[in-house]
Design a protein around this nucleic acid. Structure first.
Lengths: 120, 120
DNA sequence: TGACAAAGGGCAGATATCTTCCTATTCTTT
DNA sequence: AAAGAATAGGAAGATATCTGCCCTTTGTCA
C-alpha cells in the first residue's frame, strides 16, 4: 500500500519487536516460521494469515537494512530431518527504525487504549 | 487393506514400473515427488491423490526390500535452494516382484491391451 | 480534489518429506 | 457365514521457504 518513506507497516513493526524480544530472552536469531508462530500467539494474530505475506515482509526489511540473515548449516537441518532455516537478526538500523516508528504513532496507541479502558 | 502376502497393490506396481522405466531411460534414481508427477501424468492418475499415500507406499516397498534409498547430499539441495530429496532405486527383488505381480494378473493386462490396440 | 501508479496483502501453488488420525476394506479365523 | 484384526487410503497438517498473480489501498502529483 505505498507507504511514506521511512515508515513501518504494522506487520513489519511486529517482526522487529518480536526479533528484539527474542534477542532479549536469549535467542539472538529467529527464522520465519518461528516469527509466524510468535506473531500468531500474540494479539497481532490478524496481521498474518498467509505465509507469503511474512516472507515478503522479511525480504523488504532485509533489503532496507533493518534485518540481516544467514542460512542455517544445511548439514544441521539434514540431521534434524527438516528443511533448512534462514536465521534473521535485527540490525542497529532496525532497532532505530522500530523506536522511531513507535514514537511516530502515539495517536494510534492512545486511540486503542480508550476502547480498551471502556471494556474494563 | 490387508493383502495376500507377496502381492503388490496397484500403486506399488506403478511405482516399481515407473522406477524401472526411468532406469531404462537413463535415470538410475528417482524421488517421491518425481514419481508423483510421473504417476499423475500416466493413466494411473487416480491411484494417487494425497502425497502421504505415496510416501507410505515407498516406505512399505523399502521395508520389504523392493526399494532402497539414499538421501541426497544436503549441500547439493541447499545450493539448488530446495528441500533435499530421497533417492530410491528398484532392487533385484523389486524387479522380480513386479514381474511376478504382472504375471499373476494377466487378465487385467490383456484387458488393458485390447483398448490400447483399438486406439491405434 | 481527482486520477494514476506503486506497493502491500491474500490466495494459491511449487518444492520435498513425513506423521497422525480416522475411515473403509479385506483377510483370516472360528 | 459372521466377527475380529490388520492394513491401506484419504484428509489434514507440520516443517520451511519462496514465487506469481491479482486485487486493493494509499501516496503523490498534477
Amino acid at each position: 500500500m505505498r507507504r511514506k518513506k521511512g515508515t513501518l507497516l504494522p506487520l513489519e513493526t511486529s517482526i522487529l519487536q518480536c526479533g528484539i524480544d527474542l534477542a532479549v530472552r536469549g535467542a539472538p536469531f529467529f527464522h520465519g516460521f518461528m516469527i509466524a508462530k510468535e506473531i500468531r500467539d500474540r494479539e497481532d494474530a490478524k496481521l498474518l494469515t498467509a505465509h507469503g505475506t511474512l516472507y515478503k515482509a522479511l525480504d523488504r526489511l532485509q533489503t532496507s537494512g533493518l534485518l540481516e540473515s544467514d542460512w542455517e548449516d544445511p548439514l544441521v537441518a539434514a540431521q534434524e530431518g527438516r528443511p533448512r532455516r534462514r536465521f534473521y537478526h535485527v540490525t542497529a538500523a532496525g532497532e532505530a527504525a522500530l523506536v522511531r516508528s513507535l514514537d511516530a504513532v502515539p495517536a494510534q496507541a492512545s486511540q486503542r487504549q480508550i476502547p480498551g479502558m471502556a471494556a474494563l
